[in-house]
Design a protein around this nucleic acid. Structure first.
Length: 292
DNA sequence: GGAAGTCAAGTCTTA
DNA sequence: TAAGACTTGACTTCC
């Protein structure tokens, strides 16, 4: 069996040697020394290249970039242009393309397009446009997607999501995909929105296992259609609860250190992002255990 | 140098 | 209505 497995943001082996791409700072530090940002971004981009080279050597061709690559770049007050790093981004993008490493993003929990608060929506739009700009400057193709959740479950949330989706630039719209979550939006809740906006749907198996009503086998064909009609290679997420964790939702939500197995009936040709604390180590374990 | 507390951001629950 | 929990890794402060 051949599955394209990937991991998110941090390479634990390289991290031990201070190679990582999520350096940031506090606003209080920025106020004292605004020039610190350039050094943080330079170091993050340098290490991003190192991580991609490591991925290539280890035949890992799916990687989620950290949203902290450019700290505060989308901040209302402290935001700045990423244009000065165009050359580095282009070079990194060319390398990823050359090595067939699929790059993706997963902006954080504060990115809520369905919020009732206009300022939250405006901040979310700025955040998404920033992520899309990075991918654009890297020259990434349509397979470099940005995954977000449905967000708020207040009345009218999905209508607001749809309305605010059209406030995004076209290049940003083209990269946006939705993911089911364990609290608010199940796969079947998101399918109508994805159909209406013509955006793909990421199945997160872990979230599905915590929050579901319908058999996944029934839903998968509908989900795969959302990718096919856009010509984007499907990607799902997988993680497990910590073995021996309690029954409460809080305990089950936490990701385990490693992933022991693959989801049952995972469809052929769907990339799989492994979301475990031990990151790339989980991929090696899976390859060994399952002879992938 | 290590441990503990804090941090840009949102939403939901509880008091 | 306000405070705290949620989640997570990195920063910052304290001892």
């Amino acid at each position: 069996m051949k599955i394209n497995l990937g991991y998110a943001c941090i390479n634990t082996e390289l991290r031990k040697n201070e190679v990582y791409c999520s350096r940031t700072c506090r606003i209080s530090t920025l106020q004292k020394d605004p020039g610190i940002l350039k050094q943080l971004v330079d170091d993050n981009l340098r290490d991003l290249m190192t991580i991609l080279e490591w991925n290539d050597k280890n035949d890992i061709r799916l990687f989620r970039m950290s949203s902290q690559l450019f700290p505060f770049a989308s901040h209302e007050k402290w935001g700045y242009s990423i244009e000065p790093w165009q050359e580095q981004l282009k070079k990194i993008g060319e390398y990823a393309r050359d090595k067939k490493i699929r790059i993706t993003f997963h902006p954080g929990q504060y990115c809520v397009l369905s919020s009732e608060k206009e300022n939250v929506v405006v901040n979310s739009i700025r955040e998404l446009e920033h992520h899309a700009e990075i991918l654009q400057r890297m020259g990434c193709d349509q397979n470099s997607i940005m995954v977000i959740h449905g967000g708020s479950k207040t009345p009218g949330a999905m209508d607001r999501f749809k309305k605010n989706f059209y406030r995004l630039s076209v290049s940003c719209q083209k990269r946006l995909v939705l993911e089911n979550c364990e609290m608010c939006y199940k796969v079947e809740d998101l399918l109508p929105v994805c159909h209406s906006l013509n955006i793909p749907l990421v199945i997160d198996y872990h979230h599905f296992n915590i929050n579901n009503d319908i058999e996944l086998e029934f839903l998968i064909p509908f989900v795969l259609k959302t990718w096919k009609r856009r010509g984007i290679k499907p990607k799902f997420h997988y993680s497990e609860s910590e073995p021996g964790c309690g029954d409460s939702l809080t305990e089950r939500r936490k990701h385990s250190k490693v992933v022991q197995s693959l989801p049952k009936n995972h469809p052929e040709g769907v990339d799989l992002m492994i979301e475990a604390k031990d990151k790339e180590v989980s991929i090696f374990l899976l390859r060994n255990n399952l002879k992938i």
